[in-house]
């Protein structure tokens, strides 16, 4: 065991002293709700009859795994995550590549692109609900000026899902751009020059140099976006409340409904715990990927 000097011991003590208020606050607002939810998930805890009298063991987990609505929400969430992350990645990468090559006005483009990301998701939801309003919205008015029939953006099941996907892309694509552009800017210029002399075309340079060298950044970016996409709640709450029907009933919103509409807190906590395991797994992969990027 390494020898610890008095000075090191004092430094550590001082470090703990400085971080203690933050740690206490984190324990109160993060750790306590997680532990509480974890405990509650093993009880038949209802908000109508709150209490820990009826121990359910893994019953709530079994019920959730068997719940068609929950599985439907999980499936819708999976589709949502694949759609938004996939499209955001492709669009974000294209924009990042263009910005990386831009010689003039880079900062202006960058600031414009950042604007959506700076807006609160609730405001984004409200804004787009107004923009896409079937009768009062500007989009349908614009479509009408070129003779296209009004579209029920948030009222038709298939359309509502893709509308929510597009709004999320509009809101979050700049996050991809920011991260991917940072990665592209950090790439060394010399391998590209070597490849030019070696005879590589622009596409070959992208395929053989940019993509492989960007791989760690791409993995981290995709994982971060996936984690955030799985947790999407605000836009759904504001724009569709999971509807029409259950067309946009993403898992976070579904769990909220199970807890505070159906008042079945025990099962909602079990579902939240399952979601937490998935996100924790992705976070572990993210952590490992970020370590690789650092190395």
């Amino acid at each position: 065991m390494a020898h610890v000097t008095t000075m090191e011991r004092e430094n550590r003590r001082f470090g703990w002293l400085l971080t203690a208020p933050g740690l206490v606050l984190l324990a109160a607002v993060v750790l306590f709700p997680i532990v509480w939810a974890g405990i509650t998930s093993f009880f038949n805890y209802s908000l109508i009859f709150p209490g820990y009298d009826d121990f359910a063991g893994l019953g709530n987990y079994a019920k959730a795994a068997d719940d068609g609505e929950f599985l439907h929400s999980a499936w819708i969430t999976l589709l949502f995550v694949v759609a938004v992350v996939g499209i955001q990645f492709v669009a974000g990468f294209v924009v990042a590549l263009m910005l990386n090559d831009a010689r003039r006005g880079k900062t202006v483009y960058y600031l414009i692109l950042l604007c959506p990301l700076l807006i609160n998701p609730v405001v984004v939801g409200l804004m787009w609900r107004m923009i896409l309003h079937p009768t009062l919205g500007i989009v349908n008015w614009l479509l009408g000026t070129v003779g296209i029939e009004p579209v029920n953006w948030l009222g038709a099941p298939d359309m509502a899902f893709w509308t929510v996907v597009l709004v999320d892309i509009w809101h979050q694509v700049s996050f991809m751009v920011v991260l991917l552009l940072a990665g592209l800017s950090a790439l060394p210029a010399e391998p590209y020059e070597a490849a030019r002399v070696d005879g590589a075309t622009p596409f070959q340079r992208f395929w053989h140099i940019t993509l492989p060298m960007m791989k760690p950044v791409i993995v981290v970016t995709l994982l971060i976006r996936m984690i955030f996409a799985i947790k999407t709640y605000d836009i759904i709450y504001i724009m569709t409340r999971g509807g029409p029907g259950v067309a946009t009933d993403l898992i976070s919103y579904f769990i909220y409904r199970r807890a505070f509409v159906s008042l079945d807190l025990g099962e909602a906590c079990a579902m939240a715990a399952m979601l937490l395991i998935v996100i924790a797994g992705l976070t572990a992969v993210l952590w490992r990927s970020m370590r690789q990027v650092q190395d």
Partner: peptide, 29 residues
Amino acid sequence: DPAERDLAIVFQNYALYPHMSVRQNMAFG
């Protein structure tokens, strides 16, 4: 274009392709 000049350059910091093996680096061109 540099590719058509048929010259080879060795850079100060070598500019090897970091994701390729030595063999792949040499074979790339």
